[in-house]
C-alpha cells in the first residue's frame, strides 16, 4: 500500500481542476472549429502560445493596460491569424474543391503549427518570458479560509491566485461563448451550418463566412486561454504542444463537437493528471509522467468508445 498524503493529493486535485478550466476553454475552441468545419486543427497549441506572447508583449508595451483588456486583445490577434489562415488555406475545403479533404486538413493545419512555432522562435527566441500576476487577492481570513496576495488557502489546500484568476476567466469566457452560441444570431448561424450546410445556405446563412468565423473564434479561444495562463508558466515557443495535446484528449473524451463534453472533459483531465501525479511515489518521475495520463485515457477512449462521452454518432 502506497502511503498517500491526503492534503498533498487534495492540493494536486485543486490545481488540476483549476487548470482543467483552461483546458476546457481551449477544447471548446477546437470543438467549435470541428463542429462547423469538420476539421481538427493541429495548430491549436500554437494559437495558445501566440495568445500568451501577445498578452505578454501588450502588457510590456503599455504599462497600466488592464490584464483583461490584454487578454481580449490577444484573442483578437489569434482570431485574425485564424481567420486569415482559414480564408487562404481552408476556404477550398469549405467549397469542397479539395481532393482527399481529410488528409489535406490534417497536413495543412499541422503545417500552420510548424510555421507559427518557428516564426515565434525566429522572432522571439527560445528564452522563457514571464508575466507578473494579473490580480492580487485581497488579504482576509474567514474561518479556515485565508488569503494572501498570491494564494488562497482552503484549510490546508493552497490555490494559486494566478491559476484561480485563469480559471475564473475561463469560466466567464465559456459562459460568454455559450451565450453567443445559443442566444445570438451568429450562434444560430454557426449551429445551423454545423448541422446542415446546404439547409443553412437555403435559409440565407453564408456557410463560407460561418466557417471563417468559426475558425477565427476557435483560435481566439485558444489565444485567450494562453493569455490567461501566461503568468502561470514560463512561456516558450514550445509551450503550446502539451496544452494542445490535452485539448485533443478532451475533445475525444467529451465527444467531437460537443460543448458540454469539452467542459466536462477538461475537468476530468485536470483531476486525472493530478491524481496520477499524486499516486506515483517517486515525485520526479510522477511529474515527468504527468502528461502521459491524459494520453492513456485518450487511447482508451479512442479504442473503446471513439464517440466519446457526448459525441454524436457519425
Amino acid at each position: 500500500m502506497v502511503d498517500i498524503n491526503l492534503s498533498f493529493l487534495l492540493r494536486l486535485i485543486a490545481d488540476g481542476l483549476l487548470i482543467g478550466f483552461i483546458y476546457a476553454l481551449m477544447a471548446m475552441g477546437l470543438t467549435l472549429i470541428f463542429s462547423v468545419l469538420r476539421v481538427v486543427s493541429f495548430a491549436h497549441g500554437e494559437h495558445y502560445m501566440i495568445g500568451g506572447y501577445a498578452a505578454y508583449y501588450l502588457l510590456e508595451a503599455f504599462t497600466g493596460l488592464h490584464p483583461l483588456l490584454a487578454i481580449l486583445l490577444a484573442g483578437t490577434v489569434t482570431f485574425t491569424i485564424g481567420a486569415i489562415f482559414e480564408r487562404i488555406f481552408l476556404r477550398p475545403l469549405a467549397e469542397e474543391k479539395v481532393e482527399r479533404p481529410g488528409e489535406y486538413a490534417i497536413l495543412v493545419t499541422f503545417g500552420l503549427g510548424f510555421f507559427l512555432q518557428y516564426l515565434t522562435l525566429a522572432l522571439i527566441g527560445p528564452h522563457p518570458k514571464k508575466t507578473a500576476r494579473y490580480f492580487d487577492l485581497p488579504a482576509f481570513e474567514l474561518g479556515p479560509i485565508t488569503a494572501t496576495a498570491a494564494t488562497l488557502k482552503l484549510g490546508t489546500i493552497p490555490l494559486s491566485a494566478t491559476r484561480l484568476t485563469a480559471a475564473v476567466i475561463a469560466v466567464l469566457l465559456m459562459f460568454v461563448m455559450l451565450y453567443v452560441i445559443h442566444r445570438t444570431w451568429l450562434g444560430r448561424g454557426l449551429r445551423a451550418v454545423s448541422q446542415d450546410k446546404q439547409a443553412a445556405a437555403v435559409v440565407g446563412i453564408n456557410p463560407l463566412r460561418m466557417s471563417t468565423l468559426a475558425f477565427g473564434m476557435g483560435t481566439m479561444l485558444a489565444g485567450m486561454s494562453g493569455a490567461a495562463l501566461v503568468p502561470a508558466f514560463a512561456w516558450v515557443p514550445a509551450v503550446g504542444a502539451p496544452a494542445a495535446v490535452k485539448s485533443y484528449v478532451i475533445i475525444v473524451l467529451g465527444g467531437m463537437g460537443s460543448i458540454p463534453g469539452a467542459m466536462l472533459g477538461g475537468l476530468i483531465i485536470g483531476v486525472v493528471e493530478a491524481l496520477g501525479t499524486g499516486l506515483l511515489p517517486d515525485p520526479n518521475r510522477a511529474f515527468a509522467y504527468r502528461d502521459a495520463y491524459g494520453m492513456l485515457i485518450f487511447a482508451l477512449v479512442l479504442l473503446l468508445r471513439p464517440r466519446g462521452l457526448f459525441g454524436r454518432q457519425e
Binding site: V39, I106, V245, V252, A299, L302
Partner: peptide, 27 residues
C-alpha cells in the same frame, strides 16, 4: 484498425508523446 483520419493522427501523436515522456522519465 478502427481509427480513421484525424483520430488516427491523434492516437499516433499520443503514442509518440507517451513514448517520449517515458524515455524522459526513466532516467
Amino acid at each position: 484498425l478502427r481509427l480513421k483520419g484525424a483520430y488516427l493522427a491523434l492516437f499516433t501523436i499520443a503514442f509518440s508523446e507517451v513514448l517520449r515522456l517515458t524515455l524522459n522519465a526513466e532516467l
